[in-house]
Design a protein around this nucleic acid. Structure first.
Lengths: 329, 329
DNA sequence: TTGTACGCGTTATCAG
DNA sequence: CTGATAACGCGTACAA
């Protein structure tokens, strides 16, 4: 490994001077600068971030904590975060929490040990002591928290939107899948949806789900059609659940969207490739990731005390699992 | 931040002793140990990994480089890697390369600057100078390389399997989607497939694709049915491509599997939720991730010079996009 | 404009 | 069995 000393020696100057040129700090004569730059190139030197980090007590590392990267919604968040961080030369230490508070705790701990300067977390426990005691900035992603910086989509409006659109297209016996109760955005969606359904004077059925797991999605889809065989509209808790509903509908011979309409949530990349393509409420996941990263960088670099919340809008993506809206409204 | 000094002071011993206790190294009297342990707890001390890393010139960090986490195949690899690493207290610095050699270069560079002890890379350039000159162990994941440690699935056999199964089920005018030419496993699959098709005395059509991108998948699917309208069997380059084919088939009114059979590759999680569910060649992605991590840990910890290759078996997952095999063969 | 010397938190060596 | 102390590589006072 080539160190700053090697460079200094080759350039015939002191380490301080080398440090000055590579950090572009303080005065250094043009000639000396040239010598140093040549030496740096010759030795292919790049500064040891660890030593830097130790001295400055801060790094260019950010901790990213997501529930489960295997769930197709999260990679988009992750990608957004990464791209934005990358632009400012931050790197990511990444972990899957499985929504397990203990695992989160452990990860945060090792993040700290590695001098990360901030963390982005998609936690279910934003008020856990884990985060209360943290001395570095945290941004909650895809999680609502009013007293802490966070970036999330407007889940309640998403729920409303889904209900409005499905009602507008003629569903009357709507089943709403209620996502895991500990996940705020999932509850927001649910509440938004039933708010509109109630206002429309309709009643509704509920399927309570306890995770976003792909495996279990099929189980709930089965349960849905078993318990509510007459349902003619499903507002799914996310696109995976919607896929499972589509699959089950097809299996038992219910036509989508003629017999039953389905609206998903998220708009994961493959939703448009389904047959019929999935109508869904789009969350701008990639953007959310980017925003979270941007916000965290601000917090890190400007130590702004002000707590910020960024709420991004959702939108209805009309595809093939909902009927065309009748022209008379 | 509480340091080893604080602990030493509170325990009334020297830092050396504290170090001995926390690393369980050398002799230390039971009573002293107790005092130190108490102090550690009282102060909630945990060692600064950065300082450790600086001194030891190695860390508990490894670099993971994947093309694009947004592609649903990679999260499974990532998750496998992470779970295995986690078990041995290694953490991941993660980056998306977008299959861009320059980006890889940059990431590897910063990995090194952060003292990572090894890297797992799913690169298209295993023989690039980036990796040649690396002094730390590298494991290539999902990429074949005979002279370097690597973990991959048996792509050629996968191709054969796909061809065999689709022929066995009656397809005669088969179209093979050839994945990006620079990606070895994709070529292996392709070659395996045409090998069997040729042996069967059939001819075949080819659609050349240049990426695994979801957006472009639709384009190729369209092209496929436009150019080869009579095709009665498609061996897709991966499950995403297969989804696009399914989608397009449905759009133009070709029945799957009756008019045309489709076999995917990968077995990504949502393949089973399609309607009809996707028949595919399964790669054990999660296992591959775990194996790669295990191998890298060995390399890191035992400095075994021996180059190892791990090839995992693929398997045919029979679902709804292929017909039932006729009992007479 | 440049160099010397110290400290960041930890571990290993070597005396005691 | 324990304690001083010198590294690890870098950045910054402070001196020159």
């Amino acid at each position: 490994m080539t160190t700053i000393k090697d460079v200094a020696q080759l350039a015939g100057v002191s380490v301080a001077t080398v440090s000055r040129v590579i950090n572009d700090r303080g005065y250094v004569h043009a000639d000396t600068r040239k010598k140093v730059e040549d030496a740096v190139k010759a030795l292919n030197f790049s500064p040891n971030e660890v030593a830097r980090s130790l001295y400055k007590r801060k790094s260019k590392l950010i901790g990213l904590l997501l529930p489960d990267i295997t769930n197709p919604y999260f990679p988009q968040l992750a990608r957004g975060v990464e791209d934005r961080m990358q632009e400012q030369d931050y790197r990511l230490i990444f972990g899957n929490s499985d929504e397990d508070e203990r695992k989160e705790q452990d990860y945060i701990q090792t993040f700290i040990q590695n001098n990360v300067v901030g963390v982005i977390s998609s936690t279910n426990y934003p008020h856990s002591s884990i985060y209360e005691n943290l001395k570095i900035p945290v941004v909650f992603l895809d999680r609502t928290s009013l007293d802490r910086p966070s970036v999330y989509a407007d889940g309640r409006e998403g729920g409303r939107l889904a209900a409005r659109e499905i009602i507008k297209r003629g569903s009357r016996r709507i089943t709403v899948m209620q996502g895991p109760s500990q996940i705020r955005p999932a509850q927001d969606r649910f509440e938004g949806a039933i708010e509109i359904i109630r206002d429309a004077g309709l009643d509704y059925r509920v399927i309570q789900t306890t995770s976003f797991s792909i495996n279990e999605a099929s189980v709930w889809a089965e349960e849905l059609f078993r318990k509510y065989a007459d349902t003619d509209g499903v507002i799914a808790s996310n696109d995976i659940a919607a896929m499972a509903v589509l699959h089950e509908a097809s299996r038992i011979g219910r036509k989508v969207p003629d017999d039953v309409q389905v609206i998903g949530f998220d708009d994961i990349p493959m939703s448009s490739l389904l047959s019929p393509a999935l109508s869904t409420i789009r969350q701008p996941a990639y953007e959310m990731g980017r925003e979270a990263a941007g916000l965290l960088i601000q917090l890190v670099e400007q130590a702004a005390i002000e707590n910020k919340n960024i709420q991004l809008p959702v939108s209805f993506i009309e595809r093939g699992t909902t009927r065309k809206v009748r022209s008379d409204g």
